[in-house]
Write a protein that binds this DNA or RNA. Structure first.
Length: 109
DNA sequence: CGCGTGACGTCCC
DNA sequence: CGGGACGCCACGC
């Protein structure tokens, strides 16, 4: 395993997998942590590839706390169900008290 | 090697 | 203040 050879996607997976239970983060925060704040789209694109892996993609939302990627989950509200299952309140596809449950990898890692 | 893509973010009007 | 448009850049083909 050449972790040094890990691509951008793999790095994203490593960060997302380290998100604590009951906490969420944003694509931009992950991108910034990876030093590619301008590549926030790559993070979302990476999540698309994360489908089928043990990556809690449901804990990753946009900077506004909106469940923009919920449409990519199996169910219509599966992402919301998973978040609520962790004690996170979601209202109208938006996380309530987003900043309160926000987990910043730049500061925590 | 070049083109298309994308679950975002930010600027512009 | 709200909506629209563009840039961004790694990855797959």
């Amino acid at each position: 395993m050449k972790e040094n050879t890990l691509g951008f996607f793999d790095k994203v997976y490593e960060v997302v997998k380290q998100i604590p239970y009951g906490r969420v983060t944003s694509y931009g925060a992950i991108a910034k942590y990876l030093g590619a704040s301008r590549s926030s789209r790559l993070v979302g694109y990476a999540m698309n590839n994360s489908h089928g892996k043990d990556v809690p993609a449901h804990r990753v939302v946009n900077s506004l706390g909106l469940l923009t990627g919920k449409h990519h989950f199996e169910g219509t509200n599966l992402m919301q169900q998973l978040l609520e299952n962790e004690g996170i309140t979601v209202v109208d596809n938006q996380i309530k008290d987003f900043k309160s449950v926000f987990w910043n990898p730049v500061e925590e890692l």
